[in-house]
């Protein structure tokens, strides 16, 4: 009983510490918020089984990211078999925020375009953008999470942002909500 409590405490601490990073990694690969959530939950369930079985997880972060990466790739393969090359939902996760219908339509359209263009970036660039914009992590934190230099984060962030802005312009998106 005491062992189970200890495992649960460790499990919850790891979830609190790494779940956003796991979600960001899965999201950067799939560009699907719901699928990323499924990958995140499945990854943590596997972590629980690992902890419960008594096998020591030496580096939980590396373990979690490896499992999440594999699951995201497996999901991509199975999604490809089901849906061909199109992602299941282009407008996935674009929830209403109480805006007017016309504004909402314009925003959804711009978001769909952003999403399409994000597909053209590398998963590494998308991961940095996700960590920066979805969770508002600063460059030092992203650098720590990804194990790269702060200068490299700035450079990749700037490059990904510029590339995205250029592609949006080239695709006729002149305004954003």
């Amino acid at each position: 009983m005491r062992r189970t409590t200890a495992i649960r405490e460790r499990f919850e601490a790891l979830h609190s510490q790494y779940s956003r990073e796991v979600w960001a990694l899965a999201y950067a690969r799939r560009m699907d918020a719901d699928a990323a959530l499924d990958v995140m939950q499945e990854t943590f369930l596997r972590l629980w089984k690992q902890l419960e079985s008594g096998d020591e997880v030496q580096n939980p972060r590396a373990w979690l990211l490896r499992v999440a990466r594999n699951l995201a790739e497996d999901l991509a393969k199975s999604a490809f078999r089901r849906n061909g090359t199109q992602p299941p939902e282009m407008l996935n996760g674009l929830m209403s925020r109480g805006t007017l219908p016309v504004e909402k339509m314009e925003r959804d359209e711009a978001f769909a375009r952003i999403r399409e263009l994000l597909d053209e970036l590398t998963p590494a660039d998308r991961e940095i953008l996700t960590l920066r914009y979805a969770f508002e992590y600063d460059a030092p934190r992203i650098a720590e999470l990804l194990g790269v230099a702060v200068a490299a984060v700035h450079m990749r962030l700037s490059r990904a942002r510029t590339r995205l802005a250029e592609r949006l312009s080239a695709n006729g998106v002149t305004t954003l909500p």
Partner: peptide, 11 residues
């Protein structure tokens, strides 16, 4: 705009 897009994706 990017912030709005990405934050709309976060559960």
């Amino acid at each position: 705009a990017f912030g709005a897009y990405f934050q709309a994706q976060v559960p």
